[in-house]
Design a protein around this nucleic acid. Structure first.
Lengths: 112, 112
DNA sequence: GTTGTATTTCGAAAATAATCGAACAATGTA
DNA sequence: TACATTGTTCGATTATTTTCGAAATACAAC
């Protein structure tokens, strides 16, 4: 039985969370978990190699963002949403970022 | 006169902010700005080479986290705190992360 | 036990990011 | 004008991260 380590939420640092969420694939994983709830690794992998995804899940786990639970042969991932939100209020909304501008072409606009 | 570009806050993405704050030096810069207000580049540089710091300021500016204003020969940096906070409520507290556990040795504690 | 499915670990290659010296630019002052 | 100060840009080096195939592990069903 694979036993995953998950840091207690109090030990999770902002830095680790920022770092975990700075990768586009990981951010997408987390957004899906936030929107559609727990999913196994395969469901979240699109066409990417398993070893790649396994690495990303590990980064997310170690950062305290995601919890992985082995259920028979599949491992289901879930966002540690309530815990994260109590540790860093607002973080879940930021992850979802509903207000994100699309397309971001005009990011080039000059200000000052 | 150097003219810095700053993206409008509406064009700032969560991803870019996460990425900008994922570096320990940049996070430290931002924490100092949040705590002690605007400062010029030199004050924030500790003993690091200017070219290195210049790079970090650029990343922070491009991500929409910091604003740089040329004032004579020095360039003063400030956190875009209110703007960031309205775009991503809670982000400033997360940056400051007052509840951060120190030391984080016990992060190794096993849960589940 | 063998097979099949799901996932991790290992190790190496490729991509990305950080670092930093040297040269350059802008400003203020003598 | 010359000089000192502050910070940027360029280019090369190093360090870190991501990617991914191959081999290994765990479990469930036959």
């Amino acid at each position: 039985m694979v036993r995953y380590e998950h840091p207690p939420i109090s030990a999770v640092s902002a830095r680790d969370v920022f770092q975990a969420l700075s990768d586009p694939i990981r951010l997408e994983i987390v957004r899906r978990l936030a929107r559609r709830g727990a999913q196994n690794c395969a469901e979240l992998s699109d066409a990417r190699p398993r070893s790649t995804m396994s690495h990303h899940f590990k980064v997310l786990r170690d950062a305290g963002v995601v919890r992985t639970l082995a259920q028979g042969t599949e491992h289901i991932n879930s966002l540690r949403g309530d815990e994260l939100e109590s540790r860093f209020p607002g973080i879940v909304a930021m992850i979802l970022d509903e207000n994100e501008e699309r397309p971001k072409a005009d990011a080039a606009a000059l200000v000052r």
